[in-house]
Design a protein around this nucleic acid. Sequence first.
DNA 1: CTTATCTGTGAGAGCGCTCTCACGACGTGA
DNA 2: TCACGTCGTGAGAGCGCTCTCACAGATAAG
Lengths: 334, 334
Amino acid sequence: MPTKRLPTLEDVAARAGVSRATASRVVNADPRVGSSAREAVHASIRDLGYRPNRAARSLVRPDVASIAVVVPEAEERVFSDPFFSAILGAIYTKLADSPVQVLLAVAPPGRRDKIERYLRGGYTDGAIVVSHHRDDGISDVLREIQLPAVYIGRPHAGDVGLPYVDVDNVTGGMLATQRLIDGGRRRIGTVAGPQDMVSGADRLAGWRRAMGQAGLADDLVEYGDFTAASGGVALQQLLEREPNLDGVFAASDLMAVSVIQELQGRGIDVPGDVAVVGFDDSQVAELTRPPLTTVLSTTTGLARTAVEMLLTLLEGQQVEHVILPTELVPRDSA
Amino acid sequence: MPTKRLPTLEDVAARAGVSRATASRVVNADPRVGSSAREAVHASIRDLGYRPNRAARSLVRPDVASIAVVVPEAEERVFSDPFFSAILGAIYTKLADSPVQVLLAVAPPGRRDKIERYLRGGYTDGAIVVSHHRDDGISDVLREIQLPAVYIGRPHAGDVGLPYVDVDNVTGGMLATQRLIDGGRRRIGTVAGPQDMVSGADRLAGWRRAMGQAGLADDLVEYGDFTAASGGVALQQLLEREPNLDGVFAASDLMAVSVIQELQGRGIDVPGDVAVVGFDDSQVAELTRPPLTTVLSTTTGLARTAVEMLLTLLEGQQVEHVILPTELVPRDSA
DNA sequence: CTTATCTGTGAGAGCGCTCTCACGACGTGA
DNA sequence: TCACGTCGTGAGAGCGCTCTCACAGATAAG
């Protein structure tokens, strides 16, 4: 880092032949400044390449709120998984016209110290926690430093009373499974999400419930981690266990995509031989051949609601949790 | 915003019965503090929910560098376009283990005042500018406030001497077009990118050059804006002008994807009737049916190089521009 | 012409923190 | 016993800024 001292307001003022106070007024567009003084200061700012020192300013006049979006997942993942991209996009869009700053705190599960340091660093006034895992310790830190926070995705049992938004994952899982059942499928497997995430557990629970109500066996379960790579692997195992498989519910679109690819790679027709349903209704769902039948989980709605809740929280008011509805989006894969 | 005063170090010290200096030492893990004092301060911090005031701290000890990633595109776009996602992901990944903070300054083209305010706000020590348009004014602002910056994508003619990284878009465009020519295609059209962006202009130039060298007419040009939506529209126009079209070079994968969909929707076989080549080698290229032949433009390499260059710049050294090579990725669409 | 009202400006306090410096309480070696 | 560290601690300056307050000069009202 260069040690060159940056020009201060004092320098600007001296060069313009006015006091620091007047220079400050010009910078802050205070109308009560004579035009000659104003111009001198402006010229001085330009010549010196002056930029106000944010730290000094916010020390006096606490500046605009900034909120952290906390994502305990690997960086690559956060930006390549359409779920996170959609969440981030919606958060930024929602706050586009507000002065609120958005800071991204991303760190892989193993590096939770990084997020903790960040949170404790005093950078932010509030947090939105996305994709939170059991025992990632984030809620403990947040509680300890008393930072207002909203969770996207229902927190785990231990963290009761925390404000969150979520989609109705159980119903969503049922909807997806029912679609397969209604289509006449009987040997239906599921590629479930990670069970240390509530969304993973709930979607699986939905599948179980629908299967149970239809009097079908709920033994065909394999686990992935919501990424594309994990879907294909899980399908292979499903197929080994049950060659007569005729339907698959994948707990994320990305996993569903690779399930379809794996199936097609083996010469198995989708949906002729095996029907596939995904979850999320992300952009990729329209790009597959055949287009993917999936469950709309309004990612955008999650993000928008979370932002609204956090802003309410920052105003000092209490908020309840919110559950958004899910909806089946029928396409051709099931 | 709640007006409740946050606990200061003074409060912590008072409660622990020590001086502010000692409390500060504890917070900063200074070893020369007695264990009893240390414990008292820690307890006090916990009780009060104390978080250091970042502004006050950095006023004294200028804190870690923070760099802005400037993207003059609509928020939705930035997070849904795989090109930007990949760039952002690579930047965050590259800086994952450094203390450097990354701030995202995104604003649609019409709102350049927002980015300008941001840049002038003194939040950052450097900038990486992605997707820069002619006349977006960003380089003027950067020059004026003397902020070190690196461009991803070659800046326009007016901005000579600025450090940048880019891929060899002209050669890339030629590679893509040559693939079509080598495949026996003769009526080859292109869905070009926006011509106020260098990457759009250069890829088109590459197409022109390859067509010219092969003695083919370079009249079939329609323009998109790199997004999926624009690709289908452009294709329709191409098809109206030339029903015997047998090859298309789309200047982005996203446009190529919707070109393929539009083609297939009309019962035209890809690549049987019309061959299609994209650009970027983004994730979607593998998901289409048939998989998309495209040009690898090492988005990750762009981002990583830009970060390295900016860090060098921040150390006070000069940097040259860097051009990364492109490579054809043959798949089934051409 | 005096008194009240603006208008533009400067002096100076103070935001919460870090860090230098000084100091008292202990050893420790002569 | 005295000079000399060493260690833990506190007092206080100062980072760059904003903002209150006071005040000089111009203008309006009595």
